[in-house]
Amino acid sequence: MPHDRPGLPVTVFLVRHGETPMHAENRYVGRTDAPLTDLGHEQAVELGEWAAQAKLTAIVSSTLRRARDTAEPAVRKTGLRAPVDERLVELDFGTAEGLTAAEMRERFPHERAAFEADPYANPLPGGESPSAALARGRAALADISNGESGDRVLVVAHGTFLRIVVCDLLGIPPRAFRTALPVIRNATGAVLRRDHAGRWGLMAWNPPLGAGTETW
């Protein structure tokens, strides 16, 4: 399903940032500007080694620190600039920010149950509407893939945001993002290709991105 104007085929590497202390504990982190862990920095370095051979034409990052720090080794290795785009930030999880799923079930069981039944229609208490996140994600991806950034673009963003956007681009109902795409690992994500007619296809999901791995 096209979301942008026709043009040359473009490959977009939609990558989740490296690990943070909150993610290491399975806590929800949305707008909190969390740093990377030591492992997260190692994952970023590996991504940079992959970027060195990937013939990228552009790198774009969320404004949040964990995304910018994940993109930084790729910037060094390629010599490309890495503009930031606020439309790529993670969803705001409201009062669920910093909590585990178990803690949410204790503090607001009904809202958590509704979220688990349909996370798209029932955002976490005080959190951003997933439809609003999808709208900004659609707009960002349309600009990123319009050809002005070349035909091989690395985008460093966030897990929930990416799963919602990828579902939409592939024609999967966004409400199914937690079941259709249950796992998105750090420093990897989706390799997508948009054809000349603006249709999106999935080339890979959670592939290893490091020195000597596939570059598509």
Rank of each mutant, 00 (worst) to 15 (best):
T188M: 06
R178D: 02
V60C: 05
D151S: 11
L88H: 01
H17L: 13
R185A: 09
G126W: 07
A113R: 13
F177H: 12
H196W: 15
M1A: 15
L14D: 07
Y120H: 09
V191W: 14
V45G: 03
A52W: 06
L162F: 00
R136I: 05
L47W: 12
D92A: 13
K77D: 01
R31P: 00
P119H: 00
G30V: 09
A101E: 10
A52Q: 06
A187W: 14
H41W: 09
D33T: 07
Q43N: 12
A133K: 01
L192P: 07
C167W: 09
L56D: 01
N186C: 10
T95L: 06
A114I: 06
E72N: 15
G159F: 05
G40H: 10
G150D: 10
W200C: 03
R199S: 13
I144G: 02
G150W: 06
P130L: 02
D143P: 02
G94S: 10
G7E: 11
G7Q: 10
A187L: 13
R27H: 07
A67K: 04
V155F: 06
R27K: 10
S62G: 13
G98R: 04
R5W: 04
G171H: 11
E214A: 14
L162I: 08
A190N: 02
A74L: 01
R107D: 00
A96I: 05
P73A: 11
E214L: 12
V191I: 15
P173E: 11
L202M: 10
E86Y: 07
M1K: 13
P109E: 08
W205V: 03
V191D: 07
L64K: 12
E148L: 13
P83Y: 03
L56C: 03
L39Y: 09
G98H: 04
A211R: 12
D38L: 02
F13Q: 02
G94T: 08
I172V: 14
T160I: 14
R105I: 07
R193H: 14
E90R: 03
H196L: 15
H3M: 15
N26A: 15
R76V: 05
L36H: 12
A180N: 10
H41T: 01
V155A: 08
E72H: 15
P73W: 08
G198R: 07
P83K: 04
G18T: 15
L192R: 06
A54H: 00
G150M: 09
H196P: 04
H23T: 15
E97K: 00
A176L: 15
A187D: 14
E106H: 03
H3W: 15
P2M: 13
D85K: 05
W200L: 04
I144N: 01
I164H: 00
E103I: 06
A190F: 15
T57Y: 04
L181E: 10
A101D: 11
S149G: 14
A187G: 13
L14R: 02
L170T: 02
R178C: 04
P130I: 02
F13R: 03
R193T: 14
K77E: 13
A24H: 08
G18D: 14
P119Y: 00
T78Y: 05
L124M: 15
A67C: 09
V60R: 07
A67Q: 06
G30R: 11
A211Y: 06
M22V: 15
G150K: 06
S149T: 14
D195I: 08
E103T: 08
I172G: 00
L47P: 08
G137K: 03
E128M: 02
L134H: 05
V191Q: 11
A142Y: 07
